[in-house]
Design a binder for these strands. Structure first.
Lengths: 206, 206, 206, 206
DNA sequence: TCCTAATCGAGACGGTACGTCTCGTCTTAGT
DNA sequence: ACTAAGACGAGACGTACCGTCTCGATTAGGA
């Protein structure tokens, strides 16, 4: 069987170069914005040859994603992460959604995440990677909290949890991406309240 | 008063060139995808000098937006547009959301809209323009239908209509942009049902 | 008939850029030598975009040749040039060959000419161009002087003038290119004397 | 005395690798031409690590030279080589010069020799090596034949033999390198005849 | 016979330059 | 004044090689 292109041997990979590249990528995207981010610039800032980037990452988006994964998930253990559960679903969700809002408003995260989302929009392969490695685990954590709420009788048992997660987080992410209106903690509260209560009047009998 | 930069005189503008450019832009973005779309290519495809593009549009995103506005809103009258109102809110919303899903899945719209969203993500000026000229009017139409539902007692009176719109359309738009899962008509129905009913159990009295 | 690649329109060509590029090329090849001469470097030194070079010259060799032609032939009229004719063929040839030796030893000409010859060795198209535009005219001038010598009875009438030119100038050029031995004015004299007299003994009858 | 750089120990040298490299170099230069010849390519074609090349040869030119020396001088004994001596100097020289022409026109030799000459033009160290190991011995063989001719009274006694060799072989080598005109056996004959007879008329007595 | 040190293949690394592409500006003719 | 055309300075793209630098894995002699 003839080998296709001799894939790089990751055992020989330089960890120093890898970290320098990821750091430089995050620094530069925060500094210059996504539009002015170039592989050339990242290589120069990291003190690395361009080929070293092209060797290990298939696209600028994949590099950015890797950078985000590496440094954003730096502190936490990975699997041990869970949403708070004080017994009060509405309060817990507001806390989480407000934290999300705060993070999205944080300049340090804003630019890289916009960049990543831009790439995802146009690159199905990267989207799949994102869904598997970032969105998937996060979504599972959220669904876990909602499952607990179902067990506690605070959430309807027949609700599709994926839809529930989308209902809660979709509006916030959307407003952030589209900038249709400022993204405030109050908005997060509103979304939680409205999503939990539903749009239909409660005093009517169905 | 000395003129600053001799602003282009739109009275002399060539309508033929304008339409050729907008058409070429939509064609090319559908053909090549956003990443390979270039001003240079649009000019060549439209049989137009590059300067003619730079003279009339401030950015590639603005051009794309213009193209979308010009051709997407082609058939409809503009103000007369309204959401259907059969008296059955859930059914009407499902109809609209399914139509949205269908449009987003339509290849002819998919690429240009992704491109526009990408630009919006990074260009606040364009985002404002988008909010004012496209999202705003559409949102108003949706809110009008919801207001009617409030009058008919099918929607809680104290619900913020903007949040309601976000709750209904945000998840769909999000799933489209992020490709976390396939975007189906059934999902549209689920979102409507869940948003209307709310996440909380209905059989509890409080 | 579809146009192939839309050849550049030389009427719009920037003369300033052209001269800056040719000057920079000659300067740099003299400064760094041929091996370290790069298009990138020439463009930077000339304050010019790389594309402007690639647009007008098919290869580094063609550019160098152009530079040499432009500046080496700067002073002289072009057609009026002729070799000296004092009536003494040997003296005239020695003068010319000594001048050739001096020029080849001149650092200002040495590097660019070596570079050009290197390119010619590997690029038949450039070789043809060289033969037509530089070697051809020069050879004609030399042959003209030899024709005059034939008329004056100082040169055998049945000698092929091209071979005669090669016999006189070939050894000098060769020694320069191959560095087999130092290239001195005395060597020029020796070549002229030997070529004129021939290798065979003169006092023998056969 | 501390060793400077740990010079390679040639006793441990792999003869298989050496021959594979030299063979690959000659093959590739004939196949791709000199411009596209790369150390990387030679190493790959030879199935050899790049370092093995860099360890044993100081430059691409030295490698090429080595390759030429190894395979071009393969059949012949080395010292026993001598030019033919039938007693007829002109005939002998024509034979040799025609053989030279044939070799230079041989595709198998053309490319590598051009490559070597290119390197020599720019690399004085290689030029010295070439002069000592290839040009020198060959020139000595040629001069030996000319000396015999002098003894036989077929060559003027006061002619500088180096100049004589240059006069005979320079024109041919030059026409080959510069491609000013096709290199034919007839040209070789003409050069020999003209060089032997001289350019001056023979019927004049002085 | 084992030891050990140099050579081997392989290929990652920091770099430089390549030739192409597009950017946004500027210039030239032609309506 | 606008247009089509396209040259220009600028600079990023992704590729190809450069020459240096580890890596194990042979592969010789010298002990």
């Amino acid at each position: 069987m003839p080998k296709q292109k001799t894939a790089p041997d990751s055992s020989r990979r330089s960890e120093a170069a890898r970290r320098a590249i990821l750091t430089a990528a995050l620094d530069l995207v925060g500094e210059l914005g996504y539009a002015k981010l170039s592989i050339e610039g990242i290589a120069a800032a990291a003190g690395v040859g361009k080929q070293t980037i092209y060797r290990w990452w298939p696209s600028k988006g994949a590099l950015l994603f890797d950078a985000l994964l590496t440094f954003a998930t730096d502190g936490q253990d990975g699997q041990s992460a869970a949403l708070p559960d004080t017994g009060d679903l509405a309060a817990d969700l507001k806390l989480v959604l407000r934290a999300t809002v705060a993070e999205l408003n944080e300049p340090r995260y804003d630019q890289p995440m916009r960049a990543l989302h831009t790439e995802i929009v146009h690159d199905p392969a990267l989207a799949a990677d994102y869904a598997e490695r970032l969105d998937g685990p996060m979504r599972e954590i959220k669904k876990e909290r909602l499952r607990a709420a179902q067990r506690a009788g605070q959430l309807a048992g027949d609700v599709d949890l994926d839809v529930a997660v989308d209902l809660l987080f979709g509006p916030v992410l959307n407003r952030w991406l589209q900038r249709t209106a400022p993204l405030t903690p109050e908005y997060a509260d509103q979304v939680v309240d409205t999503a939990l209560r539903g749009l239909r009047p409660r005093d009517r009998q169905g």
